[in-house]
Design a protein around this nucleic acid. Structure first.
Lengths: 299, 299
DNA sequence: CGAGACGATTTAGATTCTCTAAATGGACTG
DNA sequence: CAGTCCATTTAGAGAATCTAAATCGTCTCG
């Protein structure tokens, strides 16, 4: 019997998530790849580990038992990694991280510069992920650290094994085409009805849900005119006079725009946070980079 | 940090054996491969794991610590394998084994036939190894089961984690060119001096050491005429009148020969044994195949 | 002291693994 | 019953990892 790290991770994630597709997206593979890995693991185990049930798949008893062992192996791996970093006596080695698009553009460069100065032996590798995916990436061990977003006014449950460190607190403002509203003081969402249409992210994203929730609390249902995922695209549409949206400073830094930005009466915030596994919180490399992020945030 | 099974095994074996070359031969790789694997492990660890000391290499503190974790992971793997086999409720899956050359020819076929009948879902994979290497192959986990040889009159220390099961007990006889000795009763090694020269395996093999030791106990130093590793080649040389050697029934079965076979006065035996790791002794697949071997031996 | 053995490492190249993309085929859903 | 969801299979591209051979430092022994 011979296994790979990927196979063990796939099995453990399958227990958590229940579908091959979900495992694949959590681990950053295609479903086909995960299916093949699990197939290989099953062949080398000699015992069925999965059972098709309806259009999905379920772990057999043997699969569950093996997943338990796999989890223990991954735990040892985590402990070994932490111990290696401690024993190095200095910050060195590699750290995998994930960031949402805007953070890659606006935070990563300064962070890398600072890490390069203070911890020259640490190599930080990063990948850009859709913001709602970075939590899973951390939880499943694909990355050690992520920069993500929280909407404290519309909180959602996170995996309890995750720890979140506040970096920046940003207040949302209303972005409206230049001159389209006759005043420039604080605006209530309740007064954003027609003819102003909304440019919104899909409701199945945390951001999309948060905007809608805040609007509903203010007593309006935002009229979806254009569903847009990309932040810069949203801003371009507002600038073009197509509709209204919400913005933060970081979003404006990414794409300086010519439209009116009005404070909101309603409280609507987002937090830019660092996300780590609780078990990795005290790893020197992880702690060091989190510290760099906090330092940058303080400036 | 990501690692493979091979890397962990290499590290653990390096702690046991001390040289990359020894690890390589124990795991069935070239030294270059092991060196590269350890290098990759070291890179992903970010900390030096090895230190060159003279012409060999030594584990650093970090390397030792990691080897400890690796050992624990391999232990879990072993436990998981055993549990999977138990949970299968029947003998199924794969079993890796190693045999010395003669055993491949004379034992493996019957064994596979019997396994095929009684455990049709079990796939046995085998490799031929030089007999002195099969113990390491079992101990290091490269195979689960081996057929090896013991020389009870000239015992040597084995890894204490190994268990040995007696299959066949064979008495050595003296093989001499036809008609070269004027009697045909039991012969003492003490009377094998010139003009009869010996055909011997190298002294750094267990067999070679055993013959020499037994001869010395009988008061003679066997005169090495031709050093030969391969059993069939030895017999061919005796048949050709080149010298004398020792033989067993199994060796004669492998290569029926025309020379005189005389009983020895001195006790000189070898045992054909099954070799397993103590920790794998009770794995259903392992126990099943050992049982088949014992059954065959009883016939 | 110098030649040879030993042991680790590096390199180039071949093989094997393992991904992705796309096609396939059940199974739910409305 | 058409469309969607999900797992799997396939072919092929790219990456990982092995071997063989060369290299280099170190030890041993005449």
């Amino acid at each position: 019997m011979d296994w790979s790290s990927v196979q063990l991770r796939s099995l453990v994630e399958l227990r958590r998530r229940g579908t091959v597709t979900a495992v694949a997206s959590a681990l950053g593979y295609t479903p086909g790849a995960v299916s093949q890995q699990l197939g290989a693991l099953e062949r080398s185990a000699g015992v069925p580990l999965l059972r098709r049930v309806g259009r999905r798949v379920e772990l057999t008893d043997a699969g569950l038992a093996l997943a338990g062992h796999a989890q223990r192996i991954l735990d040892i791996e985590a402990a070994a990694t932490a111990e290696l970093e401690h024993s190095a006596g200095r910050i060195a080695g590699e750290l995998q991280m994930a960031l949402f698009a805007t953070a890659v553009a606006e935070i990563l460069p300064a962070m890398l510069a600072r890490v390069g100065e203070t911890h020259p032996d640490l190599v930080v590798r990063s990948r850009e992920l859709v913001v709602d995916d970075v939590y899973d990436a951390v939880a499943s061990g694909v990355v050690d650290l992520a920069v993500g977003l929280e909407y404290p006014d519309v909180p959602i449950r996170r995996d309890p094994s995750l720890r979140v460190v506040l970096l920046y607190r940003e207040r949302f403002s209303l972005a409206v085409p230049a001159g389209s509203l006759p005043w420039d003081g604080p605006v209530s969402l309740a007064r954003t009805g027609p003819p102003l249409g909304w440019i919104l992210p899909p409701e199945d994203t945390h951001y999309g849900l948060a905007i809608r929730t805040v609007c509903r609390r203010a007593g309006i249902e935002p009229e979806l005119r254009h569903e847009v995922v990309d932040t810069a695209v949203s801003l371009a549409l507002v600038e073009a006079g197509i509709g209204i949206s919400t913005v933060t400073d970081l979003m404006l830094r990414l794409r300086p725009s010519r439209f009116d930005v009005l404070p909101l009466v309603e409280r609507f915030e987002r937090h830019i946070v660092a996300v780590v596994r609780a078990s990795a919180e005290h790893r020197p490399n992880v702690a060091a980079v989190v510290e760099v992020l906090r330092d940058l945030a303080r400036d």
